[in-house]
Design a protein around this nucleic acid. Structure first.
Length: 561
RNA sequence: UGGGGAAUCGUUCAAUGGUAGGACAGCGGACUCUGACUCCGUCAAUCAAGGUUCGAAUCCUUGUUCCCCAGCCA
């Protein structure tokens, strides 16, 4: 008797599996698979499927195969296979020993199944042209017409199909079709093509084959051969389920896998369709598959998203059959939630404004010990040098500040984070432009680790970097790739690209402790956001990606007034 | 138009004839050496109309809207 499953998150798929286990279907076994085609990099939508399929296997102590669904040589490559393997592993899943499969490894067996189909009268070689096949298929409202080749003898079919394999014909000369019903209301069932001639080398089988099985034939049989119990796919395959069942029923009827369809993921302000992602890369709208603006797993990794955050997101969005458009804010929430716990805090100034502390001794340099995480002392402390000349954020000084602004301005005081309270004294302006070049302040020596005397309230706290000790850095600020919520719904999506999706800021200063930060490591730049050391980093010259900004209630206040 | 699906707060997931709930977003407040985090509060939904029932998001009827299918892609 199978054990009941304990799970706090439930969905219709888990309900089905629970019921199958209850009735001891498949002897209570759960076997899933993740079946990407290696013709592109996997993205956040695939991650949803990865988490679902591998998560189910984990939850029900079953198995989940990784299967490369490589039945169409066009566009498939080993580069993509390797990226998929790397990305699934990085997401935190493993298929285990002997569970990495390729549909292309089944070509010979699939061919045998096709032969069997011909012999049992379930398939025939059709010699109509592609255009004719389309015409004969009929329309939504009109039934199709039977192909004149539909009743060829078994012998003729066998001979033709073998000759197809041996390379006697050009592309498109013949196809193998399942003999079902040209009048079926479901167009998928109108004698679907199951093999086509394609004289194109395959990245694994090279030139061994010139005929390739179609998805509808290869996928269900691959599932059945692997002993998959629950074949989970997206909604657009619902129409194909009768064909899936029809084929397996006739060739491998024992333990037929159950196809279950769920809604694919859509995320606002981005595109996930493979065709469009490829276009973004090929036409250089982005800098490759791992561009941090891309919704690919490799892009998100480079951006600084963690696998934990992505898994959390996939758990949060759930699984259902409704078409959806998930707010990218939920993804960002999951990323912040994860990084808030794990990212050490540091101080960095993106747009520096020079501040001179007039009453601070010229040659003095203090080193402050700063907490790496205010809520987690276990993360330790680091040393941050302080000196007479500092940089602060240009945004943190205003000559004529609005109400509610509690940073630096004429006549104002502000707390330097982890350091002293300083008071504005004067400023130096460019005579031509009026731009503020530098400001002079006085510090209050009593305020180190202490509130100012006399009960003065200093509401503002700003970050800073010692000019002498700061490390020059480049910071790349990312914004959403598209400027409209649902670019996928537009016929032409390119005009909706966000022209400001990348801003490169080159004259930043990060604190000394970041000088040799390792690529991939993540930090919170206090008051700014979460940042990740980019792979472009050179020794002593760090490059950071902004993973996601901190939530910012000030901008709302400032814009509202 | 034939077939296949789906309709619940702004978004999304739940509630499986018995108090419509959570998350994100929004708004308000508390706290704060991060305008972050955290905490508290708050706004807000059953596609429509009939019917069955003591009782309907859930069952029935009719209608409406949206998505998918006419690749030798997957």
């Amino acid at each position: 008797m199978a054990q009941p499953t304990i799970s706090n998150s439930t969905d219709f798929i888990r309900d089905i599996i629970d019921e199958d286990i209850r009735t001891n279907k498949h002897a209570g076994r759960v076997a899933t698979r993740f079946p990407p085609e290696p013709n592109g990099y996997i993205h956040i939508g695939h991650a949803k499927s990865v988490c679902l399929n591998f998560g189910l296997a984990r939850q029900y102590q079953g198995t989940c195969n990784l299967r490369l669904d490589d039945t169409d040589p066009a566009g498939e490559s080993m580069e993509f296979v390797e990226s998929i393997i790397r990305d699934v592993h990085w997401l935190g899943f493993d298929w285990g020993e002997g569970r990495l499969f390729y549909a292309s490894d089944y070509f010979e067996r699939l061919y045998s199944f096709a032969l069997e189909f011909i012999k049992t009268g379930n398939a025939y070689v059709c010699s109509l042209s592609p255009d004719e096949i389309r015409e004969y298929r009929g329309t939504f409202t009109e039934p199709g017409k039977e192909s004149p080749y539909r009743n060829r003898s078994v012998e003729e079919n066998l001979s033709l199909f073998k000759r197809m394999r041996s390379g006697e014909f050009e592309d498109g000369a013949h196809v193998l079709r399942a003999k079902i019903d040209m009048a079926a209301p479901n167009i998928v069932m109108r004698d679907p093509i199951i093999y086509r001639i394609k004289r194109e080398p395959h990245y694994r089988t090279e030139t061994k084959w010139v005929i390739y099985p179609m998805y509808d034939f290869a996928h269900c049989l691959s599932d059945a051969m692997e002993g998959i119990t629950h074949s989970i796919c997206t909604l657009e395959f619902e129409n194909n389920r009768p064909l899936y069942d029809w084929i397996v029923e006739k060739l491998i009827p024992a333990n037929r896998p159950k196809q279950i369809e769920f809604a694919r993921l859509s995320v606002s302000y981005t595109v996930l369709s493979k065709r469009r992602l490829i276009e973004l890369v090929q036409k250089d709208y982005v800098n490759g598959w791992d561009d941090p603006r891309m919704p690919t797993v490799t892009g998100m990794r480079r951006r600084g998203y963690s696998p934990e955050a992505i898994r959390k997101f996939c758990a949060e969005i759930g699984v259902a059959k409704n078409d959806n458009l998930i707010d990218v804010a939920l993804l960002e929430h999951c990323v912040r939630d994860d990084l808030n716990e794990r990212a050490p805090r540091v101080m960095s100034v993106l747009r520096p404004l020079r501040v001179v502390i007039d009453n601070y001794p010229e040659n003095r340099a203090e080193v402050f010990e700063c907490q790496n995480h205010p809520q987690n002392p276990d993360m330790g402390i680091r040393q941050v040098p302080f000196s007479r000349v500092l940089y602060i954020e240009r945004d943190d000084f205003m000559e004529d500040p609005p109400k509610k602004y509690h940073r630096l301005g004429p006549g104002r005081e502000v707390r330097l984070r982890n350091a002293y309270v300083i008071k504005f004294e004067s400023m130096v302006k460019d005579e031509q432009t009026g731009e503020v070049l530098e400001i002079h302040c006085a510090y209050d020596p009593q305020t180190r680790n202490a509130p100012p005397a006399g009960g003065r309230k200093v509401p503002g706290v700003i970050h800073w970097v010692s000019a002498e000790h700061g490390v020059p850095a480049e910071v790349r600020l990312y914004d959403r790739l598209f400027s409209i919520e649902d670019p996928e719904s537009e016929e032409d999506f390119i005009p909706n690209l966000n022209p400001n999706s990348l801003e490169i800021v080159t004259n930043c200063y990060v604190e000394q402790s970041l000088k040799n930060a390792k690529p991939g490591s993540q930090y919170q730049f206090e008051r700014l956001g979460y940042f990740c050391v980019d792979a472009d980093t050179k020794a002593g010259k760090p490059v950071f990606n902004r993973v996601v900004p901190l939530r910012d209630s000030w901008t709302k206040i400032a814009e509202g007034k």
